[in-house]
Nucleic acid binder design. Structure first.
Length: 434
RNA sequence: GGGGUCGUGGUGUAGCUGGUCCAACACGCUGGCCUGUCACGCCGGAGACCACGGGUUCAAAUCCCGUCGAUCCCGCCA
């Protein structure tokens, strides 16, 4: 007999069926009656256990025991979902006899994040936790399908590198057969190189940052959704593409993740056709005028500034997204293209999502001469990035791209208090397990 | 790297201007009751030497110092 999932009971009313899953909740009423909530990958349904034999067969089992059950589907208005299983016969597949480190069947899990993460192996089974990662998977899927439809090719670039190229200080060094190697802090060089091959490429993969940060919005390993495209006018071409990607992800979530969005009470973001845009120095002026903080000589925005700008975008433009363009060249990596009208500023952008940095992107340099000059200006040698800049000697179109932090996206979407909650098994300065 | 906060049963907290605390409440576990529970309800029970080490005091969960652990902010970034 084929296994029926918990969301398929309505198709089998009156039939004798087989189900299997975890005993999510066990409610014993006196005089022998027991309600068992069975959890499988599709959801949760209820089993009514009344016969003394059936009650005896699950005696001593604690929640998360795995069972197979044969029973009769009954339409029952009193049951959540309207259907339940009667006259069950259980087969125990895995017996649990000790209590969980913390209860996972309550709507709210009462455990500190640190405690939760220590026991993420079982904690992640909680429906509300599952929902976070189903959304995460759906967001990555949405990213891929939008870009697939726009002629992008998915690539897989190496995560073990021979040179700590981009900035040097914040990469993890590893031993590679006796040679020094580094974990990739971004696929930046390779995705640009691959623009020379495919014009449009993307990658969804982990990146590694050795930054010693200790905040609610940083991880030392996270999933970066990178895209890079050739034949652009300037960074605004990239911003338009990014806008389509974000809007595409959101509509795909709305279409396919209704259950998760509802369970997590997600407030769907305001994402207008055109995201509002503010030029970096103007953003600083605005902050000075409206919040009295003079950051006009700073080369970057502080988290508090981004929060203010996010609120402003929402109130003024009905948008949870805000582009900040033209970050000063001094704060951008060497491959960044300057603003031709004012070379102090760059043709790059950040996308703020509800006041937190979600995406960085921009136009890149594309001529070899520009790379040679940029490296020299920063005191870097061509040798250090030899195979990368060789690309630009052999014909590279104007190009640019962006990188979305997947966990950041999910955190801001669902209103999580800590980025670690958006990673299955987060890596931070202190945590290497599980 | 700089700064702040916090460590009390398996989990989350209260107690922390020292004595009434061999530590309380909720969840979980457990014995019993209820044939419609679904964050059920009711009556019992087990489970903590209050992170660790030292000090002050007649008296320390409570005050002081140190260690370890956790956590947040800034810097940096996505």
């Amino acid at each position: 007999m084929e296994r029926v999932l918990s969301n398929e009971l309505s198709l089998h009313v009156g039939e004798r069926i087989h189900m299997a899953g975890w005993m999510h909740r066990i409610r014993k009423l006196g005089s022998g009656m027991v309600f068992v909530h069975l959890r499988d990958r599709a959801g949760i349904c209820q089993i009514v256990v009344e016969s003394p034999e059936a009650v005896a067969s699950i005696d001593g089992l604690l929640v998360e025991s795995v069972v197979e059950v044969e029973g009769t589907v009954v339409a029952e208005p009193q049951a959540a979902g309207g259907y339940e299983l009667h006259d069950p016969a259980f087969t125990v597949l895995a017996r649990v006899t000790e209590a969980l480190p913390f209860p996972i069947s309550k709507p709210v899990i009462n455990a500190h994040l640190d405690t939760f993460l220590d026991h993420a192996m079982v904690g992640l089974r909680a429906p509300a936790k599952q929902a976070i990662f189903r959304l995460s998977a759906a967001a990555a899927h949405g990213f891929r399908s939008v870009l697939d439809a726009k002629g992008f090719t998915e690539i897989a670039t190496p995560k073990i590198l021979g040179t700590a190229s981009e900035s040097g200080a914040n990469v993890f060094a590893i031993d590679y057969f006796g040679k020094k190697a580094f974990l990739a802090q971004s696929p930046q060089f390779y995705k640009q190189i691959m623009v020379g091959v495919f014009e449009r490429v993307y990658e969804v993969a982990p990146v590694f940052r050795a930054e010693p940060h200790q905040t609610i919005r940083h991880l030392n390993e996270y999933v970066s959704m990178d895209a890079e495209m050739g034949f652009i006018k300037d960074h605004t071409t990239v911003m338009a593409m990014l806008t389509d990607v974000i809007r595409g992800i959101l509509s795909s979530l709305a279409d396919h993740c209704g259950r998760e969005l509802e369970l997590l009470k997600v407030d769907m973001p305001l994402a207008p056709e055109m995201f509002p845009t503010v030029y970096f120095p103007e953003a600083q002026e605005w902050i000075f005028e409206h919040h009295g903080e003079d950051c006009r000589n700073e080369p970057d925005l502080a988290p508090q500034h981004e929060k203010w700008l996010g609120e402003w975008a929402k109130q003024t433009f009905d948008s949870d997204f805000l582009f900040v363009t033209g970050y000063p060249m001094v704060k951008r990596p060497f491959y960044t293209a300057p603003n031709p009208a004012d070379p102090r500023y760059s043709n790059s952008f950040d996308l703020l999502f509800r006041g937190t940095e979600l995406v960085t992107g921009g136009q890149r340099l594309n001529s070899f001469e520009d790379y040679a000059a940029a490296l020299e200006a920063r005191g870097m040698t061509q040798e250090a990035v030899a195979s990368y800049i060789e690309t630009f000697r052999f014909g590279m179109p104007p190009h640019g791209g962006f990188a979305i932090g997947l966990e950041r996206f999910v955190m801001q979407l669902t209103g999580l208090a800590n980025l670690r909650e958006a990673a299955l098994f987060p890596r931070d300065m202190e945590r290497l397990a599980p």
